[in-house]
Amino acid sequence: MSEPTISSKHLIVRGKENIVSDMGGEKVMLSVRNGRYYNLGEIGGKIWDNIEAPVSVDQVVDKLVSEYDVAQIKCKEEVVSFLELLLEEGLIHIEEVNP
């Protein structure tokens, strides 16, 4: 398994060219950039809501752990995997946190 690109030293920044809609509790998104539709599901939608402003992975995870019954380590692992997918599809980009 390859090392994740996203780490605690990154800020997660939403791409601007996405149209998002709530459908039955799930988040569906159209990327204007590539013309594709995505379903982020319920938790993915929650993550999307939490990155409205640029934030670190740790901030996203802290918020989710306070709301969902999940261990911090497991949550971070799965959130990073999900964010990597968003990054691959060009739905988000990452910036280095200033030291």
Binding site: Y37, G41, I43, Y68, C75
Partner: peptide, 15 residues
């Protein structure tokens, strides 16, 4: 009461 966690997934819709 905390909500049930499910692994987040990204589904690329077939259109």
């Amino acid at each position: 009461m905390k909500k049930v966690w499910q692994k987040p997934t990204l589904e690329v819709l077939n259109i």
